[in-house]
Simulated assay, not measured.
Amino acid sequence: MRILIVEDEKVLAETVRRGLRNEGFVVDLAHDGVSGMRAAMENPYDVILLDLMLPLKNGYDVLKEIREHRIWTPVLMLTAKDGEYDQTDAFDLGADDYLTKPFSFLVLVARIRALIRRGAPERPVVLAVGTLTLHSVSRGVRRGDTPIWLTAKEYALLHYLMRRHEQVVSKSEILDNVWDSAFEGGDNVVEVYVGYLRRKIDTPFGLRTLTTVRGMGYMLSPDRPADSPASAVD
Rank of each mutant, 00 (worst) to 15 (best):
D97K: 00
R163W: 13
K10G: 05
S181Y: 15
R38T: 11
V16E: 05
H31D: 15
P204E: 03
P102W: 04
R198P: 14
R208T: 07
L49M: 02
M219A: 13
G24A: 11
D8C: 06
P225S: 03
W72F: 14
D145V: 15
M37Y: 12
D97L: 11
W72T: 05
N22T: 11
P124M: 06
K153Y: 13
E42I: 03
F205Y: 14
S136F: 05
D89W: 13
L207F: 13
I5F: 02
T211W: 10
G186M: 06
A80S: 07
V107D: 13
K57F: 04
I3V: 07
T73Q: 12
P147D: 00
R208H: 14
M162G: 04
R18G: 14
M53K: 08
I3L: 09
T88R: 11
A30I: 10
D96N: 15
K153L: 12
L12W: 02
F25A: 09
D46E: 14
Y45W: 00
L197V: 03
V190H: 11
Q87A: 10
T100G: 07
L134M: 11
V75Q: 02
D28G: 02
V126S: 01
V34D: 11
A156T: 09
P124V: 12
G206S: 07
E7H: 00
P44E: 08
P44Q: 12
F205I: 12
A128W: 07
A13C: 07
I201V: 12
G186E: 02
Q87V: 01
L108V: 02
F103H: 02
T151K: 13
D180N: 10
T73S: 13
D61Y: 00
L197A: 06
S170N: 03
V129R: 06
V168T: 04
K81S: 03
T100E: 12
Y155W: 14
V107M: 13
M219N: 12
A39F: 03
T73H: 15
V233L: 09
M53T: 01
V109H: 04
H135N: 04
G59D: 05
V168W: 02
F183G: 01
F25Y: 10
N22H: 09
E65L: 07
N22F: 14
P225D: 01
F91S: 02
L220D: 01
L161H: 04
R111C: 10
Q87H: 12
V141C: 09
M41D: 11
H135R: 06
L49V: 00
D227E: 09
D145R: 11
L12I: 08
K81W: 03
M162A: 05
